[in-house]
Structures are given as structure tokens and as C-alpha cells.
Design a protein around this nucleic acid. Sequence first.
DNA 1: GTGAAAGCGCTAACAT
DNA 2: ATGTTAGCGCTTTCAC
Lengths: 345, 345
Amino acid sequence: MVGIDDVARQAGVSTATVSRALSGRGHVAPATRERVEAAAAALGYVVSSSASSLATGRNRNIGVVVPFLNRWFYTSVIEGAQRRLMQYGYDLTLYNLSGDDREREKVFQDYLLRQRVDAVIAVSLELTVDEITSLHALGKPLVGVGGPLSGVRTLSIDDVAVTKLATEHLLSLGHTRIGHIGGDVDRELAFHLPTNRRLGYEAALREAGLIPERELYFPAVFTMESGYTAAKQMLGNPRLRPTAIVAASDEMAIGALLAARDMGLDVPGELSVIGIDDHELAGFFGLSTVAQHPGLQGERAVELLMEELQPSGGAHLDDENTPLPFDLIVRSSTARPLRRSAGRR
Amino acid sequence: MVGIDDVARQAGVSTATVSRALSGRGHVAPATRERVEAAAAALGYVVSSSASSLATGRNRNIGVVVPFLNRWFYTSVIEGAQRRLMQYGYDLTLYNLSGDDREREKVFQDYLLRQRVDAVIAVSLELTVDEITSLHALGKPLVGVGGPLSGVRTLSIDDVAVTKLATEHLLSLGHTRIGHIGGDVDRELAFHLPTNRRLGYEAALREAGLIPERELYFPAVFTMESGYTAAKQMLGNPRLRPTAIVAASDEMAIGALLAARDMGLDVPGELSVIGIDDHELAGFFGLSTVAQHPGLQGERAVELLMEELQPSGGAHLDDENTPLPFDLIVRSSTARPLRRSAGRR
DNA sequence: GTGAAAGCGCTAACAT
DNA sequence: ATGTTAGCGCTTTCAC
């Protein structure tokens, strides 16, 4: 393995100068820098990250912890984080908690404490007090994505506002019987997300002078299949049937779309459907939705961390929870209700 | 930060003994080991990975390089690899190449060479000779997943056999007009995968005494949308219309299923569709398919690496390319063709 | 079975 | 602007 002293010898300088020239820290004469760079390139020298880390205490590596991998939202966040990290010259070490609880404990009690990461991004994770404590004890910056975490800087969309917007879109089109397919409150995914999204839906109805009906809420588990099943229940009951559905995620919304199709219901003629996410399949299915931008969330998380790791003075890091932008995207799954019941007016 | 000497002092032994006791290498009296473990636990001691790496030359970390993240196949491989790695106490550092080419170069010329990973898993990557060379120069084990790589140990399914099996399933049901939606050969994904899958389809037809028709092959790009479009073309042409379709991936197959539905074609009555993958949505759509098991592929890749990193003598590592298992899974999207054309007989 | 001590390869004071 | 040098925190001979 070619080491720093090989380069130093080749360039005719000391190892300290090589280190300075290559890392950019400290002043080096331009001519020297060039000689060093040439020598390094010629020898194919690359710093040993462990030696460098040991000496500096910095790893140029951040840990990203996710509850699952096989979900569009998580991979999008990771992708965004990775993209930005690479620009900063950082690595991304991935911890996936989808295994059993022992695994989760191992991650928090061992892996993250091995001084291998300079900071951690926790995606959609409801951390326990212990976990937050041990992470903080590490003295490493921590940022959460996907929901508020007490005592932790987090990035997340306003889950209440998001479904409220979706519901208002439907109301503004003239719908008055609007169903909701939301997460199962009994197994809250994280951060009361299902509950919050439901609250937004109900708030919009109330503001429009409507009373949310228990029967128009169907719990599901954030998958296409589960959305399909819920929608079938909702649409199959003739005295219940809404003219529009707000689903708490695009995958559930797509399931609802497919259910409607299987039942011979015309979308958006007889049923409007709106989701939350702007999932990669939303465009294909013509699904109206409220976009959250997970890739951007990952990027922003990294920026926050970098500001803390290598302060540039540009930003202020005060806020505990930074609200993220979201946008209504209208496609072809939402429209005015057919004037079937015009007579009622 | 509590270090090894703190533990040594607390346990009344030397740092050498602490190291031996905690790492399991070398002999330590059981009583001593317990004292050390107790001390370490009490102090909340965790080894510094950089110090340990510097001393041993090992990182307990492997790099996984993928071309994209937002694809079921890749995340499944990663998930499987991660699962196994965690059992071995290893970390997983993720490199995503979906950015531009400069990024790819950075990964291979810098990141992977920083001595930060003990080995690398390249998923569905057609590596250049230079890339393989520089990786080999590192002296780190390398295994490929998803396709054969010359000079590299790889794990992959037999792409020819897989579509051959799918096509044979259709033939055995009595189909004789079978279309194929495959990858676009002009932008081969990797390893001539599209071509190989097409070859399997054609081989099956030929063995059944049928001649593959140019017009029954439609190129697409491995997405649902692209499968949908291709299927529409294929099914919309009355003098072309096949009674069955083999798609080179489940996502394309699902697109075809949706196209058939939109055209009012009954599946499997008027059209049978089979894919390749056993994608997470395949069950929901009742899609018959040939399962490959990406999670297992990730796990196997790790096992191969571990055998090389910490030989247990149990296995032999001879084979350049290990063929992986695949299974036909019949659901409700395939059946005998309707005897509409029985008269012809 | 345990301890002393010499590194592992780099960085950052401190000098010059 | 550059060199000297003392660590960073651990592992691993080599003694005992």
C-alpha cells in the first residue's frame, strides 16, 4: 500500500506538507501543491480513511437509519441524502431496522456508537428517549426526517396540512361525501402520521360545514393492496358510497383507483381519488396528489448536518422542526362529481 | 469518550487483555473476561472503529454499489446483504451511481479506494476493465450480483433459462401466439440482460416448433408505464394480437395487465401474461411469474465475501459465476387460451 | 493467561 | 510556507 511518506519522498517534501496539500487545510505554495498532487497521482495514493479518522476524529461518513428499505419514500430520502453527501465527499452508511428488535438495539447500542459516523439521519423513526440520549451522548449531530422528534432537529411536512389541502381540493370541486383511507391508528407508523393525516381531512370537512362520518373512514396499512381492500368496502356499500376519497398515501390511492375500476366505477366521473406523496407511479395512474419531496428532504437533512459539521456561517440552525414544502398536483383522478344528485339541490 | 484504558483500569488489567477479552481473539481466563465485560458495560465502552481499523487493517464494513436505488430489485438485494452483514457485525456503505458519470468515476477512483471497505458488492453493474483493475489492485474481494462479470466472482440467475421457463409455461397451456415485451436492446441495462431474456423466449418457441416473429417482440424500458405502452401496441393490432405475453420483468408485465384491462380484454381468458421477478406487487395483481430472489442474492453475496474475509474452510470459492435458483409461480394471469379458434383445428 | 511496548498511517500543534 | 514530532486508540507481537 502506498502511504503518505511515499508521496512525501517522491515530491521531496514532508508528510505534513503532503497532508496539507491534499486536504486543502493550511497553506501550501502552489508549486509545491502541484508537485505533491502529481506525485500522489503517479503513485495512486489515496488516504487511509481510518488513519485520517483516528487523527482527526472525523470520519466523513454519516449514518442513515431507516425502518424499511423497500418503500419509495425511504429510498427516495436515501437517494437525496446520498447525492448531497457525495458532493461533500462523504460516505453514507446504511442501517435498516426492518429486522427484529434485537437488531434495532444492536444498531443503537453498538453500530452507531463505534465512532464510525460523524452524524446520523433518522428517517421516519420514532426514537425512544434512550436512543436519543445515547445518540446525543455521542456528541454527534442528529437530524430526523419524516416527523417531529422531541429534542431533535427534524424535517417534515405538516401531515395535518397536507391532507387538509387534499380534502379542500375535493371540496372545492363540489364533493360533499368524501371518504378517507388512512393508516391504522392502532399501529401508528411513526409520529402519529396516520392520526395527523386524518385530522387534516376532518378539519377541512368541518371548515366546510360538514361533519366527518365515522363510516367514511377506513383504516389500511399504506400498501396498494390494503388501499384496494379498504376502497372495496367503502365503495361496495351503496348507502355509504362517497363521491371522493382522500387516501393518506399514493399507494393506497392507487389501490383505490384499481378497486373502482374493478367495480366498474368511472374515475373521475363517479369517483374522485386523491393521494399524498407523488409516488413514482402517480403520474402513470393519473393520480391527483399532494407531493412531498422525499429526495429534497434527504438533501436538506444533509445540508443541516453539514452546517453543523463544517459551519459556513451562512445559516442559522435554530428551529427544532423545519416544515417542508408540499404541492397539490392535479391529474386526472379528480373532477367535479357527476350531477347525478342534482335534484337534491 | 471512554477508551480502552479506562476499561483496563476499571477491570484491573492491561489494555491488551481488554482487547483480547472483548474481541475474542487470544486466550483470556473466563473470570478475567467477565470482569472486563462488566467494566466495559458499566462504562459504556464501544471500540473506536477507526483505531481498530488502523491497527488491524480491517474495517468490518463492506461497500455495496448499485446503479439505482428506486427499484425493487436493488433495494431487495441491499436489504438481504444488510441483514446478513449485521449478523457478522459488519456495516454497509452504500454507493449509488444514479448520478452523472463523474460521480461514478469518483466512486471508483476515490471512495472505494479509501480503505474504508473490506470488500465490495457490485449490483447489476457492468464494470469497465479499469474499474475491475483498480478494485483488484486494492486487494479487496469483489463479488458481482445480477450478471456475469469477467474476472469477478458473480451471482446471477440464468436470464436465458428464466424466460425460457416462462415461455414454456405458456406453451404448455396451449398458447402458440406468444408476444414478448423485453428490454430495449439499444440500451442494454447490464449484462445483455434484455438480449438474454429474449433469447430464452425465442429458444422455447423454437423448441416447440414455432418461429419467433419479429412483430411479436416489443422493446420497453423495465417500467410499468413502458410495459403498458408496449402492450397497447401489441394488443391493439388485430392481426397481430397474441394470446399470451412474456414480459422480461414484473413491472412491465403489470403494465401489460393494466393495458389489457383498459382494452376490455379478459385476463387470463383472452390474454395470459407472465413476468419475471416476483415483484412485491405481483401477488396483488395475481401475476404469474418466475421468481428470482434478490434478497437471497444479497445474502449469498455476503456469505461469499465472508468466506474470503474470514475463511472458515467450509466452502470452496472456485466458481466464477454461481447460478441462482428461480421458481415458476403460477397465479391467475395465465391459463389456457379460450377455444375461440377451435374451428381452425 | 497476562503485560509492555511498538506500531498502524495520518494530522495538527509548534517550530522555524 | 514547510518540517518536526507527538499523538489519535487500538491490536499484536514478544516476553514472562
